[in-house]
Design a protein around this nucleic acid. Structure first.
Length: 587
RNA sequence: GCGGGUGUAGCUCAAUGGCAGAGCUCCAGCCUUCCAAGCUGGCUACGAGGGUUCGAUUCCCUUCACCCGCUCCA
């Protein structure tokens, strides 16, 4: 049997298979489709469900330090104010229609212009039409490639006289940027191109809560599941009797009004996330409790969480856990890359962020991210809601009590210095320390956040193979196989009667099917030749096919179990089959 | 949002200003003792709207969707 050396799927072949076999359909197809939305068919919804269940078991249920949550999709709009999602995108925005496509707040265009290379170039030339014309035909091509007079220097003649009289750099810029006959427009300060009319721009979907369609009733569909976890942090911690380090996991839909949904289900407007917010003690608390914070080195044993771990160990731990999950679910370690964001790429609140990127056919793209977000989110919610997000840690208070005044002063001095080195104020550090010495702190958070849909896509891409086979008679044939991990495969086992026109054989196969069906998602197929039935299952990734034949009926009751990947068969009793499947599916 | 391309059956693709065709799939039947066998029969399509025309799947316009490139991705 040839092994999978064949080039990875072109996405087209996979898209076609997914539609033909009922994995994924375009939303609202009978009405011409609806960009950015997808429907999962009979097999697709099983696949997605399996991915989510595997994540949930691994992240929540198999652990004692993670709790689950299923929060509402529409929440108090103040949540998005606190998180910063609302401010960033609620202002009118203009986009450059020229080369650079920059998107910026309409009221800030002139501010940006004030610092721009274009302004610096134009200002000294004010009133000198000849110089300006020369610039447009020369250096301007590099500085302002989108400027109308740079692209159409012949127009300079028509405005040559006007140019002489312009004494204001903004007016000059507008004149050079405006095509003849067009109304004067604000040009792009970055490239000189024409900007779109300012439009309200919000990547959150808006809706109205209550029957009255009034701006005061506006609410938003959540653009991420994380904020609900932060908002419910105190409730979950208290009701579940947890203390940091512990996490809250959630799987659910999120919505983003993406500018360009593309690459099949990779970026859609409605999508599903699997997010864990893992709350940890600040490093300072760990140090007070343990006397030190474990350093993260290549030798650090990350298999079991330890009390002396600081955020670095915890962050790395979750990176490793996530990779372990990916590999267990069928994505080989060499199919994805781990990208550690550089310090200048990090959001201001993040201390570290790792993207796990999968090699999709359309490029290497983010599959999930594991961010160390400090106490940013909980602090913001404490600030905006007025409700405490602090944890009271009695052992910490006792540990502080045991310190002498000198030791406390030394700890304070060391901490203040460390905070100042990170660009924070001594005042902030002292406020934090005052609370910490009382045993109180806002937890920090490690956030592994994965997209269900892109996970499904990665697993499908990885699983897809077109195998060239040659049969006994030398005939060539192509076998399409999805090598999905058994735990992820939509159908676990298919049951066939070898022939359907022998009533006893048929009835026995039905019995076996019914028995298996109580445990797994099974498939019954009695039509067509047996080989065709195997191939149908190969194409949807069913790991096992069970055929009931005359030996089952007349000899020992064993069935044949056929393996999807090797196409090999073995005879096995139904009880052994169940044991084997339990083992493969439950891990 | 811009530029280029594409929309015909479940899938992959033809042809055509005048009855829209194939292969595969699917369904029914016959046959069938393990890898897409064979035979017979069957279902199913011109993305949507408007215009030109005696007549439009074909030409034109608009729109929707998809693909490629730019852009965006808090």
């Amino acid at each position: 049997m040839e092994k999978k050396e064949a080039p990875k799927s072109s996405l087209d072949a996979l898209v076609s298979l997914c539609k033909r076999r009922g994995f994924i359909f375009q939303s609202s197809e009978v009405y011409g489709g609806f960009a950015g939305f997808w429907d999962y068919g009979p097999l697709g919804c099983e696949l997605k469900r399996n991915i989510k269940e595997s994540w949930w078991r691994f992240t929540v249920r198999d652990r004692e330090d993670v709790e689950g949550l299923d929060a509402s999709i529409i929440m108090h709009p103040a949540i998005w104010k606190a998180s910063g999602h609302l401010d960033t995108f609620s202002d009118p925005m203009s986009m450059c229609k020229g080369n650079c496509r920059k998107l910026m707040r309409a009221d800030q265009i002139w501010d940006v212009f004030g610092d721009s290379a274009i302004k610096a170039a134009l200002e000294p030339m004010l009133g000198d039409a000849g110089k300006i014309a020369t610039w447009c035909k020369g250096k301007g091509k590099a500085v302002a490639p989108g400027l109308y007079t740079v692209q159409h220097p012949e127009y300079l003649e028509a405005i040559f006289e006007t140019l002489k009289g312009v004494t204001d750099v903004k007016a000059l810029f507008v004149l050079l940027a405006t095509p003849p006959g067009e109304p004067e427009a604000l040009p792009c300060p970055n490239c000189g191109g024409v900007m779109t009319e300012p439009r309200p721009f919000n990547l959150m979907f808006k809706t109205v809560v209550g029957p009255v369609d009034d701006p005061s009733n506006v609410a938003y569909l959540r653009p991420e599941t994380a904020q609900a976890i932060f908002a419910e942090f105190p409730n979950v911690m208290v009701s579940a009797r947890q203390m940091p380090p512990f996490g809250i996991g959630q799987v659910g839909k999120s919505f983003r009004n993406e500018v360009t949904p593309r690459n099949y289900i990779f970026r859609s407007r409605e999508f599903e996330q699997m997010e864990l917010e893992f709350f940890i003690k600040p490093d300072e608390a760990v140090e007070l409790l343990c006397g030190h914070v474990a350093p993260l080195t290549p030798e650090t044993d990350l298999s079991e969480p330890q009390a002396d771990w600081g955020w670095e160990c915890w962050h790395k731990y979750w990176v490793e856990q996530r990779k372990l999950w990916l590999v267990r679910n069928g994505l080989p370690a060499d199919s994805f890359v781990e990208y550690w964001q550089k310090p200048d790429e990090l959001a201001h609140y993040a201390r570290a962020c790792v993207d796990i990127e999968y090699r999709f056919p359309f490029g290497t793209q983010e599959l999930e991210g594991i961010a160390a977000r400090s106490d940013f989110d909980l602090s913001r919610h404490q600030e905006h809601s007025g409700k405490s997000m602090e944890v009271f840690d009695e052992p910490l208070k006792l540990a502080v009590k045991r310190l002498s005044d000198d030791e406390k002063a030394a700890f304070r001095a060391k901490t203040v210095a460390a905070w100042e080195a990170r660009g924070k104020t001594a005042e902030a550090a002292n406020i934090f320390l005052d609370r910490l010495f009382e045993g109180k702190y806002i937890p920090h958070v490690i956030e592994p956040s994965a997209g269900v849909d892109r996970m499904a896509l990665a697993m499908l891409c990885n699983a897809y193979e077109e195998q060239k086979l040659v049969d006994d008679k030398g005939r060539e044939d192509v076998r399409t196989v999805l090598h999905l991990a058994p735990a992820i495969a939509p159908v676990k086992v298919a049951v066939f009667p070898l022939v359907k026109n022998r009533p006893e054989l048929y009835a026995l196969a039905r019995d076996i099917f019914k028995r298996l069906q109580r445990r797994y998602n099974c498939f019954w197929d009695e039509t067509g030749a047996i080989g065709r039935r195997y191939r149908r299952q190969d194409e949807i990734g069913t790991p096992f096919c069970v055929t009931v034949d005359f030996d089952t009926l007349e000899k020992d009751g064993t069935v044949t179990l056929r393996d999807r990947d090797t196409m090999q068969q073995e005879r096995i009793s139904v009880d052994d089959l169940i044991r084997k499947l339990d083992d493969l599916i439950l891990g």
